[in-house]
Design a protein around this nucleic acid. Structure first.
Lengths: 253, 253
DNA sequence: GCTCGAGCTTGATATGCGTCAATGTCCGCC
DNA sequence: GGCGGACATTGACGCATATCAAGCTCGAGC
C-alpha cells in the first residue's frame, strides 16, 4: 500500500490524466484517443522559479512547451534593447510555435512565478503526428489560435491606455474563468512594469490608470490582487472609448 | 500546333510550374515532390479587381488562398468601427490561417490591385496532408512564419512614426528583392491611408514623414513610386532612432 | 480639353502619454 | 525588529502625433 501510494504520486506528476491543465493541452488529447501514442511525447514536467528562463532567443528549440501550472511570459528584445512582451501564458498554453519554421527560437520565455512545465520533444511529436490525426489537428489548431491571439493584440495599437488596460483585465478574467477560477477576484502574477511592456505603456501610466479605475468604482486593487467591481463598465469603456459616468451627462449650451 | 499552343496557355494559367510565385508557394512544393498529390489541391486561379474581397470576417472559409500575382490586404474592423490592417500580402503568400482553428474567418481580405488568386480547398488539403510529409511541413512552416510576422509587427508599437515608416519601406524593399524585383525602385500598391491603418498613424503623418525623408535625401517619391536613395540611412534611423545627419554633428558647449 | 472627385500635402492647434523626479510601501534578510 | 532595495504611486512638464481645416494634384470620364 505504501509503495503503491508513492507510485501514484510519481504517476500524477507525469500523467496528463491528473493534470489540471489537461482540457487545454495539445498533448492531453492523445491520452483519450490512444494512450500508447502519448509515450514518445510525454516527459516528466520540470519546475522553473520566478525569473528563470525556459529558453532564450537564438536557442535551437528541441521541443514545444506546455505550461502545467504557474505562468510564463514570452518576450523579444527590440533593436534598441527594450523588452517587448509578446504574451502571458497560463496552464494549458503551448509556447515555442515561432521556432517551428526555422528551429530557432526568436523569443525569450521566463517564468513569472514558480511554474511546472511540460516538454514535448519535436522528434517524438513528428513521429506521433505521422500516425495521429488528432495530434495533427491539435497542432494546427494551436498555431491558428496563436495567430488569432497575436492578431487580437494588434488591435491594441488603436486604443487609448484606458482601453488597453480595461481590455487586458477583462481578457485575463476571461482566461481565469475558462480555467475554473473566479473572474472577479484574481492575482496578477506579473509586475506593473511587465503589464506596461505588454500593453506598450509606461509603468507610471499603468499605475495611474489603475488608480483612476479605482476612483470610478470599476475595480479595487490590493498589491497584485485585482477585484473587478464593474466588468460591464470596463467593457463599455473598451468598446465606446469613454467612461459610462453620469457626471458626463452634463448639458452643454 | 495551334491547338497545342492554346492548351499550353490554359495549362500555364493553372500550372504551378509556370507560376511566378512558385518558390514561395505552399502547394508548389508538391509538384516537385509528387505531381499526382497536387491534383486534389489545385484549382484554376481566379482574378479579383482592386477593392474586391476574397472573404469577409465571419465567412466559413473552405480553403486557404495563395496570391499568384498582385497584392492583397487583410484587415479587421475594431469594436469602434476602425479598419486595422493586419498585413499586405504579395505573390506566394498564403492567407486564411486564422480560420483554421474554428473554420471561420476573423479577418477580411481585399485586393489592392487586379490580382490572381489560387484556392487550396481544405478538404483536398487535409486529404493530401495524410500522405505527404512535404505538405505537412509546408503548412506548419507557413503558419510559423505567420506567427513570426505578427510578432514582428508588435515591435512597431514601441517605435516613432519615422521608425515605423522607415522599417515598413525597408521590409517592402526586402520583399520585392526576394521576389526578384528591384529593392531600390518600386510601386506601393496601397494608399497612404492604408499605410496609416497598417502602421497605426494618421494619413497626414504618413505624408509628412515621407516629405521629411525626401528633404533628408533618404528617398524620392512620385505618386506611388518610391525610390530608396539611402537604405543605410533608413536602417540607421530604425535602429538608432535618429537621423544619421551630418548637420547634427554640432558640438554643444 | 475641361470638370469633378479622390487622394495627397501642408499648416495650426489640442492632447495623451512618456519622461523625469520625488515619495511611499511592502517584503526578505540579517 | 529594523534596515535596504525593489516595486508602486503621484506630480510636473514637454513632445510626438492626432485632429481639424484648407488647398493641391492628377487621372477618369464626358
Amino acid at each position: 500500500m505504501g509503495m503503491s501510494a508513492i507510485v501514484d504520486l510519481e504517476q500524477r506528476k507525469s500523467s496528463c490524466l491528473w493534470c489540471g491543465a489537461r482540457q487545454n493541452c495539445i498533448a492531453a488529447s492523445l491520452e483519450a484517443a490512444d494512450g500508447a501514442l502519448l509515450e514518445p511525447v510525454k516527459r516528466p514536467s520540470r519546475v522553473v522559479r520566478r525569473g528563470q528562463h525556459l529558453f532564450l532567443a537564438g536557442d535551437q528549440l528541441p521541443a514545444l512547451y506546455v505550461i502545467r501550472s504557474g505562468s510564463v511570459k514570452t518576450y523579444a528584445i527590440t533593436e534598441d534593447g527594450e523588452e517587448q512582451i509578446i504574451g502571458f501564458h497560463l496552464p494549458g498554453d503551448t509556447i515555442g510555435f515561432d521556432a517551428l519554421a526555422t528551429g530557432e527560437a526568436r523569443s525569450n520565455a521566463a517564468a513569472l512565478e514558480t511554474s511546472s512545465i511540460c516538454t514535448l520533444p519535436l522528434e517524438g511529436l513528428w513521429q506521433v503526428a505521422e500516425r495521429s490525426v488528432t495530434l495533427r489537428r491539435e497542432l494546427i489548431k494551436g498555431m491558428s489560435r496563436e495567430v488569432l491571439r497575436l492578431t487580437g493584440m494588434l488591435q491594441n495599437e488603436r486604443r487609448t491606455a484606458d482601453q488597453r488596460l480595461a481590455a487586458f483585465l477583462l481578457d485575463h478574467a476571461d482566461n481565469m474563468g475558462r480555467r475554473g477560477y473566479s473572474t472577479e477576484v484574481f492575482n496578477l502574477s506579473m509586475s506593473r512594469r511587465d503589464i506596461g511592456k505588454y500593453l506598450d505603456m509606461a509603468t507610471e501610466t499603468v499605475s495611474r490608470v489603475l488608480t483612476r479605475f479605482q476612483g470610478l468604482g470599476l475595480l479595487a486593487t490590493n498589491r497584485n490582487e485585482i477585484r473587478l467591481l464593474d466588468a460591464g463598465g470596463l467593457k463599455h469603456l473598451v468598446t465606446e472609448g469613454g467612461i459610462a459616468d453620469s457626471s458626463r451627462a452634463v448639458i452643454h449650451h
